[in-house]
């Protein structure tokens, strides 16, 4: 009963019918999405097959450096995705964002894999990499939301900030509300996910484990850890990054450097 059913190549291609449906809809209703759907489909196949080969190799490996290397590649990819979503030219935010992501996600994945799950060694790839991957994937979106909102609000509320600075406010005081709103905007999706999980949706990892024949009572424990981990990682990374980036938005006289252009 617990035998996993393999998906053959032909069955996999059958899944392309979903893409055909999307392509036809885009064509008929002039959605302009045909190119993106095609590229997205190709990338899904290519990237996941590549990951499959890499994981097959890494899961059999016993080299910590290799596991950490894969983790590093994942964070570097995430920073490029954030760069594509946050169009900010005046303040250089990429390096502090990258370093914070690297340290905070690594610490979170290490904590979950080594301490909560208790794998030995802590970098055991079948625990460490999925944990790291989920943290990076979810938190990356949160960071992009926070950063985008922070830069936008600072520009839009420039006059309000300068009014407060002119009356003796420090840069932290003058940007306190914008800071709060930006961090909140990034954290809310992961908190909302905790509200709906198990009721509105069955999360991907849990579904995967159940499909693989794992006892649902074990699968939910993993899922609970994942949900908690995502809130923690999002908080840690977004608060740290916003603190670092906020400092860069103000000059030596605590003047706002972002202009409205």
């Amino acid at each position: 009963m617990n035998q996993i059913i393999d998906i053959s190549n032909w069955q996999l291609l059958l899944g392309l019918l979903f893409i055909l449906l999307a392509q036809v809809s885009s064509f008929v209703f002039h959605l302009g999405l045909n190119r993106d759907i095609a590229i997205g489909t190709l990338r899904t196949f290519a990237q996941l097959f590549l990951m499959g080969f890499v994981l097959t190799y890494i899961l059999q490996s016993d080299r910590a450096l290799l596991v950490v290397g894969v983790f590093l590649v994942m964070v570097v990819s995430a920073i490029f995705i954030i760069k594509g979503r946050v169009a900010e030219k005046q303040v250089s935010y990429l390096l502090p964002t990258f370093l914070t992501m690297l340290v905070s996600y690594f610490a979170t994945a290490m904590f979950v894999s080594g301490l909560i799950i208790g794998s030995s060694p802590w970098w055991e790839p079948r625990y460490f990499l999925p944990a790291g991957g989920m943290v990076i994937g979810n938190s990356m979106s949160a960071l992009a939301i926070s950063l985008e909102r922070f830069f936008r609000d600072l520009r839009q509320q420039r006059d309000q900030i300068e009014m407060q600075l002119s009356l003796g406010a420090g840069y932290r005081e003058a940007s306190a509300e914008i800071f709060r709103n930006a961090v909140r905007a990034g954290m809310i999706p992961s908190i909302n996910a905790m509200m709906g999980v198990g009721l509105v949706f069955i999360p991907g990892m849990m579904s995967g484990q159940i499909l693989a024949g794992i006892d649902p009572m074990i699968a939910i424990r993993y899922q609970i850890v994942v949900m908690l981990m995502l809130v923690g990682a999002t908080t840690l990374s977004s608060v740290t990054i916003m603190l670092l980036i906020r400092k860069r938005c103000f000059g030596s006289g605590e003047e706002l450097l972002l202009t409205s252009s």
Binding site: D159, E162, M163, L165, S166, L167, G168, A169, G170, Y171, G253, E254, E255
Partner: peptide, 15 residues
């Protein structure tokens, strides 16, 4: 310190 300076030299903007 900028905040000390600006509480001694107050600036009122045009708008």
């Amino acid at each position: 310190a900028p905040s000390v300076l600006r509480s001694s030299i107050s600036f009122v903007a045009q708008i």
